[in-house]
Design a protein around this nucleic acid. Structure first.
Lengths: 117, 117
DNA sequence: TTAAATTTTTTCTACTTTTACTAAAAAGTT
DNA sequence: AACTTTTTAGTAAAAGTAGAAAAAATTTAA
């Protein structure tokens, strides 16, 4: 039985090391993920997502008129959703169209189901 | 080709509906997941996790002595970690031992990798 | 080309909410 | 009664949000 034998049982020392390494948490990614979920965990932003989705795509102006928001408030919340990858943008002349990033939402849904459900 | 034929292509109407249903986000679970990640996204709590892990198990007293914390501060942060499922408790007489919930951390790690990495 | 108009982002400040710590009380166990 | 832990209440600090205005990007008109 060689040292690199995959069937070889772990020594006590190796078991300890394996155990020891388990909670190697990438806190940098945790921070980013926390930011993504925080972006979703907000009433107004949830309404914004719904509104964009219902229209398929919307400009900032269309959105703040529809939801009767200050224009800068709409823009700020859209920026948060954009940084979280939940919406994507596409410029068309002086307009910027916001759309839902469905694959992103699907992967968040999956994550959330696994973690909580 | 019957209606229930799994190979049957979706009609336009069905495609629209499928598209329409995509952003059905369970915000209740989002909230819980956000809470879990927030629990991890905290310097002192990260240190607490590391300290518990290094000793395999610790009582509240052992922890706050080791980290020179107010006893209630230790207890409060442990409660946050416990509610997030990151640590588990086991009472032994008047002591309560805290240990790391490794499977939970593994699943969080996986989630975070999928979402960010 | 320049100037004006439109759309969006960014910045600043004030306000509100959340979070964290301290101290003390309460609860559970020996 | 003594010890360990949790919970609550009060307060200070930090973070988040909205509103107003300035700045940036683009288009339209002169």
């Amino acid at each position: 039985m060689s040292f690199s034998d995959p069937a070889r049982p772990l020594s006590i020392q190796e078991q300890v090391e394996e155990f020891d390494n388990l909670p190697d948490i990438d806190y940098h990614n945790v921070k980013k993920s926390a930011m993504v979920l925080r972006a979703l965990n907000h009433k107004l932003r949830q309404q914004i997502i719904k509104t964009i989705h219902e229209s398929k795509k919307l400009t900032v102006t269309q959105l703040y008129v529809k939801l009767r928001l200050e224009q800068s408030v709409a823009s700020q919340h859209l920026a948060i959703l954009r940084k979280a990858g939940i919406v994507t943008t596409e410029r068309d002349g002086k307009f910027i169209y916001y759309t839902i990033n469905f694959p992103r939402i699907e992967s968040i849904n999956e994550f959330v189901r696994n973690l909580v459900g």
